[in-house]
Design a protein around this nucleic acid. Structure first.
Length: 885
RNA sequence: GCACGCCUAGCUCAGUUGGUUAGAGCACCUCGUUUACACCGAGGGGGUCAGGGGUUCGAAUCCCUUGGCGUGCACCA
């Protein structure tokens, strides 16, 4: 074999693209090619929105998914990430319309029309898509590209239509006149979950509708009061209950007069405000509910889709902007002595997450998913299905429980379900799945149809038209875990790979997405969408601010990758993070990870260059020395720990074990020892190869690149995950740690006494562990830079020496010049006094009868051993101190 | 208003059933170019785990409470 030359430093940019290509060509991203693998392990990739290119948050998600999938693949699972992108209905249309406006097209919808605008959006989306897919590859994510999906492709559209049809036929989707959230700017509805609440300082006005009206009410929206049809009071309220059922006609200065009925409602808090509520059915969801119980009070919409006052608001107001109307009405109240109070109030208002404007509550005909209606043949509502999947398990089956990490999000999710109202799914935009419903203009028949049915099924008229609206993007996202596997067709993929195994997502889309996937899957497939959900926090910048375009603090992951390598980025994103918590991102972190990757490279470089023929070592090598035993035991033990941490999805914990072992135990200690003891080819290769396997899920590129030095035929990517060997524990760890300790003490003595680092000196160790020390004397001499080392059983402190102790063992180094007694006395005194405090603490514990009675025996023994060791050390140090005086 | 989370070394954070003298990375101090690595090595300093109380033989960890920061939901009459 030719001697391999490795570069002095790992250059990620040079090798990554080629490695990814090799992986992709191998076909092993597709689990169907993992012929020896058994159980499936599937991750549905949360499809990135085609609104923009990927940011660091995506890099983080890709790192999480890829670590998990590579781990499972190496564990012998049919591992698969199903990749895809999301058409992101409103978000994408809003983005493209915004761009068009900047280009001078003031009103894209009117100027371009449906077809043209859709074409523009499609062009944009396709362009973004190809950029995004390239980025995902850069991040090293091992997706099965043969199963690439898009929420808006033909297959997924079929799933959406089928789902709609099922729900429509089951009466779970209905068209109804309800108060919905309306974005004037976007000219579309949005669901309750799409609102972003912001605090707003406003005024709250207390007034009476008229001089003769007996009850005062308060409002922050006086202009909507032109649409009031009732006043609600608590039926137990003595002040008002006499008026319940009475009707009052009031003049509100709007030319039209209002008829206000006093109604009873248990929900009214008698202690809050005036204890009475003005009821505006058209512009408040809560009031609308009261109206539905008391339809005869009537409903008067006074604000229109354009955000201006309607004709019904009265001729004095029609056409006015809401703020103008507010001012006008308040002035009128004031002039007529009806305004009782005017106070400042901070309250939160809902704004559209995509268009940014404060939404208006307006009543309209829209499509809804009924979450409270019992599903046919299930005896349960969608709400109840959503609850069951995370509590007792789907259909009461404890094997079908969705496990949420960290589990506090389960509580948050359940609380959200409690407050859930019917889901408004129709949007007045064009980019999205068109609602598969048709209307007959001749007989008013409404019927389902994913394609143009040609004629009305009832009256055969051809004057039919499809609903103009499109579906909420989350309607299609909700089907993602199964639409990507071929549903509604009964595919082999569905049989093999559903339910999926693991899902990760940020907590900010818990309600949008997780909830809807659970809803859709439990309903349509009578199953859960996934077994485990890992909820992660959001990435923030150095100062804790959210990354955002408007703040201009966004970082392009590809730039980071070009500078530090993908492995470094992945490692930095996963290290020191915990599920559910936000984390800060800063470049120094990536730099540290890059340094580690380089360290691993150089460890390998050293090993590869120091041996003749690199080969695969798959059997535990022969153990020759204590150090060998120690490092192999340690490798075995961290193999167990890393596996356990990964099984708990604790990626950071797994990294900590690996990092510590690789850098400290293996590089700093064992490699140095290998230089002394020599002849360790097999052990070095064995440990390195196991390390490459254990590290591979986290830093796939550098490990794969190194692996080819040992095996240029098989990919590390499908190597078998190292197994923990369950063996009798040896005392190698204890003994070797003790030797390490002695070396550290000598190094410390040298440093404190300003011995030149390169200078070789003499040392004396007085101990009864003669044999152990003699066996390890070469290592001690080399690593502590000793010329001579005397190991004796009994003796006195040598002249011109300084020393320390571990337990009863004393360690001295000889100094060339006289000892600075004063400094040495101080040092020893300090050490003794600290040690004494420590020992006294343990002593008290051991004197405590309660402790002795209650604590486990192992703990008591540990404490006793600690005390013995400390006391012995104090004794030896005291002797040293006395000899100086 | 209700709920949840966070407050651990100068900074960023781990710390999963309560039990080592509480850890890591970066930063800092001293020393060092020993051919795997200066993207490095050796040694070191630095924390009453936000404050107070409680449970316990034993608390960063469990409970109560105060304060600060953040988030979700509700309210928004």
């Amino acid at each position: 074999m030719v001697k391999i030359e490795l570069a002095k430093a790992y250059n990620a940019a040079e090798v990554e693209d080629a490695i990814y290509e090799k992986w992709e060509k191998s076909g092993f991203f597709n689990p169907d090619n993992l012929t020896e693998a058994k159980d499936p392990f599937v991750i549905s990739m949360p499809p990135p929105n085609v609104t923009g290119i990927l940011h660091l948050g995506h890099a983080f998600e890709n790192s999480l998914m890829d670590v998990e999938i590579r781990y499972q693949r190496m564990k012998g699972k049919k591992a698969m990430i199903v990749p895809g992108t999301d058409h992101a209905a409103v978000a994408t249309q809003a983005r493209v319309e915004g761009d068009l406006k900047k280009q001078g097209i003031a009103n894209p919808r009117q100027e371009l029309g449906r077809e043209k605008l859709l074409e523009k959006i499609k062009e944009f989306a396709e362009n973004q898509k190809s950029i995004i897919l390239g980025q995902i590859k850069k991040m090293g994510t091992s997706c099965d590209w043969s199963r690439l999906a898009y929420t808006f492709d033909e297959q997924r559209s079929e799933a959406v239509n089928e789902l709609f049809k099922m729900m429509y036929n089951d009466g779970l989707i209905y068209r109804g006149y309800r108060v919905i959230n309306w974005s004037v700017k976007g000219q579309s509805t949005c669901s309750d979950d799409e609102l972003v609440y912001v605090d707003q300082l406003t005024k709250i006005y207390t007034f009476k509708y008229g001089k003769d009206f007996p009850i005062a009410i308060a409002t922050t929206r006086p202009e909507t009061k032109l649409g009031d049809t009732a006043v609600a009071v608590n039926p137990k309220d003595d002040r008002y209950k006499q008026y319940i059922g009475q009707k009052f006609t009031v003049d509100v200065g709007a030319k039209n007069s209002l008829t206000i009925t006093v109604i009873a409602d248990d929900g009214v808090d008698t202690n809050y405000g005036t204890g009475a509520v003005g009821v505006t059915p058209a512009h408040s969801p809560v009031d609308f509910e009261m109206y539905q119980k008391n339809k005869d009070i009537g409903i008067i919409p006074v604000i229109g889709k354009d955000g201006k006052m309607t004709e019904e608001a009265g001729v004095n107001y029609a056409g006015l902007d809401v703020l103008e109307a507010r001012e006008k009405f308040v002035n009128w109240l004031r002039e007529n002595d009806l305004l009782l109070k005017e106070e400042d109030l901070t309250h939160s208002v809902g704004t559209s997450d995509r268009f940014g404007d404060v939404v208006e509550a307006i009543p309209m005909e829209q499509w809804f998913v009924d979450v409270n209606k019992k599903v046919k043949e299930r005896g349960m509502s969608l709400k109840e299905l959503m609850r069951e999947a995370v509590t007792r398990g789907h259909n009461g089956n404890s094997d079908k429980i969705i496990n949420i990490t960290p589990d506090r999000f389960k509580t948050i999710y359940l609380h959200w379900i409690d407050n859930l109202r019917d889901w408004c799914i129709s949007r007045q935009i064009w980019w999205g799945h068109r609602i598969p419903v048709w209307y007959c203009d001749d007989c008013d028949q409404i019927f389902y149809g994913s394609e143009n049915p040609g004629a009305c099924p009832k009256c055969e008229s051809i004057k039919i038209r499809q609903d103009e609206d499109t579906l909420d993007t989350w309607f299609s996202s909700g089907a993602w875990t199964f639409s990507t596997l071929g549903w509604p067709a009964e595919t082999q993929d569905l049989l093999t790979y559903h339910p999926t195994s693991w899902m990760q997502m940020g907590y900010e889309i818990l309600f949008f997405w997780m909830a809807r996937m659970i809803l859709m899957t439990t309903y349509a497939l009578d199953d859960i969408p996934f077994r485990d959900v890992y909820i992660h926090g959001i990435l923030r910048d150095k100062n804790g601010k959210k990354f955002s375009k408007s703040l201009g603090n966004g970082l392009d992951p590809i730039e980071i990758i070009n500078k530090y390598g993908t492995d470094a980025l992945r490692l930095s994103l996963l290290r020191g993070t915990s599920p559910g918590n936000d984390m800060r991102f800063y470049e120094e972190k990536v730099e540290g990870a890059r340094n580690f990757v380089n360290k691993l490279w150089n460890i390998s470089r050293f090993i590869i260059q120091s041996i003749d023929s690199p080969k695969i070592i798959d059997k535990t090598p022969v153990i020759k020395t204590l150090a060998d035993q120690w490092i192999l035991d340690k490798l075995n033990s961290i193999t167990k720990s890393v596996t356990e941490e990964l099984d708990k999805f604790n990626f950071s914990g797994a990294i900590d074990y690996l990092w510590e072992f690789t850098w400290a135990d293996f590089a700093d200690w064992y490699l140095e020892i290998a230089k002394v003891e020599g002849n360790k080819e097999e052990i070095l290769l064995y440990i390195l190869q196991n390390l490459l396997k254990l590290w591979h899920p986290f830093i796939p590129f550098v490990t794969e690149e190194l692996w080819k030095n040992f095996d240029d035929k098989n990919l590390l990517m499908i190597a078998v995950w190292p197994k923990f060997i369950d063996q009798k524990p040896s005392d190698a760890d204890e003994n070797f740690e003790w030797i390490k300790n002695i070396i550290t003490i000598i190094r410390n003595l040298r440093s404190e006494n300003k011995v030149e680092p390169a200078k070789k000196i003499s040392a004396i160790i007085i101990s009864d562990k003669i044999k152990l020390l003699e066996n390890q004397s070469e290592i001690i001499k080399k690593l502590a830079r000793l010329e001579n080392l005397s190991i004796i059983k009994k003796g006195d402190k040598p002249a011109n020496s300084v020393g320390s102790a571990i337990g009863s063992t004393q360690i001295y180094i000889e100094l060339a010049s006289a000892v600075n007694a004063e400094v040495e006395v101080k040092r020893l005194q300090k050490e003794i006094s600290e040690l004494d405090k420590y020992a006294v603490g343990i002593e008290q514990k051991l004197k405590n009868e309660e402790f002795l009675k209650n604590a486990p025996e192992a703990i008591i023994k540990k404490e006793a051993d600690k005390l013995k060791e400390a006391r012995e050390k104090i004794e030896k140090l005291t002797l040293q101190l006395e000899s100086l005086k």
